[in-house]
Design a protein around this nucleic acid. Structure first.
Length: 552
DNA sequence: AGGTTAATAT
DNA sequence: CATATTAACC
C-alpha cells in the first residue's frame, strides 16, 4: 500500500489505501505519522465528523482516533500495525526476529520519547499508566508492554556481522560501521558493540589457547606470545584493500612467522579450532623439506591447523623440527599472530555462525604477495588428541602414494612454494557455539590415543595406531604430498582451510561451507596455487573464479 | 560522538 | 553460566 500524497491528506481517501484517521493534534499527528509511515499507513488529520470518518473507513482506513487520543487507543493502532507488519514479514521471508524487534523497539522508542518524556504529555502519561493497569491482562499481546527483546545473534545475524567485519577490516571495525554495513533494522549500535565485544573476547581466547599450544611447550621465547591483544590490533594499518596493489600496511616484520587462528564453525561438539600458522622465512631451508620440493629461497609457510578450544598444547614435538628450523631462520623474531580473516570481499565467506570468518589482516597478504616466488610448500599435519598427537607430515615432503587421496596435485604454481605445515589438534574443548558443524565430535578418538606416535611414523604410516587415514587432504604443494586428516576433520577443516586464503599465500582463497549443505567452496587464489581435490567437500564446478590478477 | 570496558541483567 | 544490555569511561 502506498502512502497517500500529501495533497490528498485532507481530501478524499484514495481507493485501496489504508488510512489511519487521527485527530488533528499536531503532536500526535507527527508522532503517528512517523511511526506508521514505515508500515505503509497513512496518517490523516481530520476532524471527527462522522461522515468523514466513515468515508475514510470505507476507503480502507483501518482505524481512526479522535481527540483526545488515549494511549490505549494508540496502542491498539500500533498493535494493528505491528501485526500487519509481522504478517508481511512472514509472508516474505518467514519470521524474521529482527523485524519483530525493530517494530517493537520503534514503538517503545516512540513511547519513551513522546509519551514518557514529552513535556506536554503529562496527562497522557497518566492515562497511559492507568491504561496499562487496566489492561495488564492483555499485555502479552500489546507490543508496547513487551519487554525489549534481546537480540538473538542467530547464525544469520552473526553471518552478517562477520561479513561486515570482513568488509571493513578487522583493524578498522567499529560498532557503528558494522551496524551500517549489516543494515539490520532494529539492531542498535550497542547491540553490535556488545557482539563485537564478545567476538573479540572469543577470538582472543582462541588465540590464547592456540598460542599456548603452539608455543607453550617447546617453542620458546621467540614465539612466546606477547599479548593476546596484540592479535587484535594488527597495528598495521593494513588496508584491506583488495584493490590490490595498494600496500599500505606497515608490517612490522616480514619475516615474522605469523600464526593464523581460525576458529572453526563446527558444531558444538566440534570444539576444535583450526589455526593456521604461517611462517615466513627467506631461507631456503627445508632441505629436508624435500627433494621434490624445490625450495626457493623465499618464504616458507607453515600452516598449522588446530582445532578450536583445544586443550593446552599437549605436544608440540611433531612440529618441533619445523619450528626449530623456522626459528633459526628467523632468529628471534617474534611471532606475529593474528586472527585470520577472510577477505573483505569474500562474499563467499558464508561460514556458518561460527567465527571462522574473521576479517583478514592484509598484512599477510601483503607480505606474501611480495614473495611471489616461494618454495614449494609442504604440509604437515599433526593431530593432537588430548593426550597425544599424531602428526602426519612434516615439513618434509611426504612421500605418499595415497591414491586414495582425494587430493589431486594441481598444477604446480610457481609462487606457491612455501612449505606449509598443517597441524591439526583436537582437543576438548569448550564450546562455544559459533559452530555449525557437528561432525567432528570424535575427532580425538581417531587420533591415536597412544600418543606415542611420532610424526614420522605418522606420516609414513598413515594407519599408525589410532590414526585414521584422513580422507581430507590438503595438498598445498605440487610435489608435496598430501596430508591427510582424519575424516572427522574434513569438515572441520573446511573452515580452517578457508582461512588459508589470507594466510599469505596470496593465492589462497577461502572456502566456506554452506550451512545447508556443508559444502565447501574453494575460491579465489587458493586454488590457483593449491589444489584441493576433495570431491566430497566441494565440487570442482563450484570452484571460485581464480583471481587472474595474481597471475598476471 | 563513538568506542571500549565493566557492571548488571536475563 | 553464557550472553545481552546498560552504564561508565575514555
Amino acid at each position: 500500500m502506498e502512502n497517500l500524497s500529501a495533497s490528498s491528506r485532507t481530501e478524499a481517501f484514495p481507493v485501496g489505501l489504508r488510512v489511519l484517521v487521527v485527530d488533528d493534534d499536531p503532536t500526535w499527528l507527527k508522532i503517528l505519522e512517523k511511526m506508521l509511515r514505515k508500515c505503509s499507513y497513512e496518517v490523516m488529520s481530520i476532524d471527527g465528523e462522522t461522515s468523514r470518518v466513515m468515508k475514510g473507513v470505507q476507503h480502507g482506513a483501518c482505524d481512526y482516533l479522535l481527540k483526545p487520543v488515549r494511549m490505549k487507543e494508540l496502542k491498539n493502532i500500533w498493535q494493528h500495525v505491528y501485526r500487519k507488519k509481522m504478517q508481511e514479514v512472514k509472508e516474505i521471508e518467514g519470521h524474521d526476529i529482527n523485524e519483530d524487534i525493530q517494530i517493537r523497539n520503534e514503538f517503545e522508542d516512540f513511547e519513551d520519547r513522546h509519551v514518557l518524556n514529552g513535556t506536554d504529555m503529562n496527562s497522557m502519561r497518566k492515562r497511559k499508566d492507568v491504561d496499562n493497569k487496566e489492561h495488564a491482562d492483555q499485555e502479552f499481546t500489546d507490543p508496547a508492554t513487551v519487554k525489549k527483546a534481546r537480540v538473538v545473534w542467530s547464525v544469520d545475524l552473526h553471518q552478517k556481522f562477520v561479513n561486515a567485519v570482513n568488509q571493513i577490516g578487522f583493524d578498522k571495525v567499529g560498532p557503528k560501521k558494522i551496524l551500517d554495513l549489516m543494515n539490520v533494522p532494529g539492531l542498535t549500535r550497542e547491540n553490535v558493540a556488545s557482539h563485537l565485544q564478545k567476538y573479540r573476547l572469543y577470538l582472543s581466547r582462541l588465540q590464547k589457547q592456540n598460542e599456548g599450544r603452539n608455543f607453550g611447550g617447546n617453542m620458546q621465547s621467540d614465539f612466546s606470545s606477547k599479548d593476546v591483544t596484540a592479535n587484535f590490533d594488527l597495528h598495521s594499518s593494513t588496508q584491506m584493500q583488495q584493490n590490490g596493489a595498494s600496500s599500505k600496511y606497515i608490517y612490522t616484520n616480514q619475516k615474522i612467522p605469523a600464526q593464523v587462528i581460525v576458529p572453526d564453525g563446527c558444531a558444538d561438539d566440534f570444539k576444535n579450532v583450526v589455526s593456521l600458522q604461517v611462517m615466513d622465512s627467506k631461507q631456503a631451508l627445508l632441505s629436508d623439506v624435500s627433494d621434490s620440493q624445490k625450495v626457493n629461497s623465499v618464504s616458507q609457510l607453515g600452516v598449522l591447523l588446530s582445532f578450536k578450544e583445544m586443550m593446552p598444547i599437549v605436544d608440540m614435538k611433531p612440529l618441533e623440527p619445523a619450528i626449530s628450523r623456522h626459528q633459526s631462520w628467523n632468529g628471534g623474531i617474534p611471532v606475529m599472530q593474528f586472527m585470520q580473516y577472510p577477505k573483505h570481499n569474500h562474499k563467499r565467506c558464508s561460514l556458518l555462525e561460527d567465527y571462522s570468518c574473521l576479517p583478514k589482516p592484509d598484512q599477510e597478504h601483503q607480505v606474501f604477495a611480495d614473495h611471489v616466488h616461494t618454495p614449494p610448500s609442504v604440509i604437515s599435519v599433526t593431530c593432537n588428541t588430548e593426550d597425544d598427537m599424531c602428526s602426519v607430515s612434516e615439513l618434509k615432503p611426504v612421500h605418499t602414494n595415497q591414491k586414495s587421496s582425494h587430493i589431486k596435485p594441481i598444477s604446480p604454481v610457481p609462487f606457491m612454494t612455501n612449505p606449509v605445515s598443517v597441524q591439526v589438534d583436537s582437543g576438548l574443548s569448550n564450546t562455544q557455539d559459533y559452530s555449525g558443524l557437528s561432525n567432528t565430535q570424535d575427532f580425538g578418538a581417531t587420533c591415536g590415543k597412544d600418543g606415542s606416535t611420532n610424526q614420522k611414523d605418522h606420516y609414513n604410516d598413515q594407519t599408525c595406531s589410532g590414526w585414521i587415514p584422513p580422507p581430507l587432504q590438503l595438498s598445498l604443494t605440487n610435489e608435496t604430498d598430501l596430508v591427510s586428516l582424519p575424516e572427522q576433520l574434513q569438515l572441520c577443516s573446511l573452515q580452517g582451510i578457508g582461512c588459508f586464503e589470507n594466510v599469505g599465500l596470496n593465492n589462497m582463497e577461502i572456502f566456506q561451507y554452506n550451512d545447508s549443505t556443508s559444502a565447501i567452496e574453494v575460491h579465489g587464489n587458493w586454488y590457483d596455487s593449491l589444489e584441493f581435490n576433495c570431491d566430497y567437500l566441494y565440487d570442482s564446478a563450484d570452484y571460485p573464479i581464480v583471481d587472474e590478477c595474481l597471475f598476471a
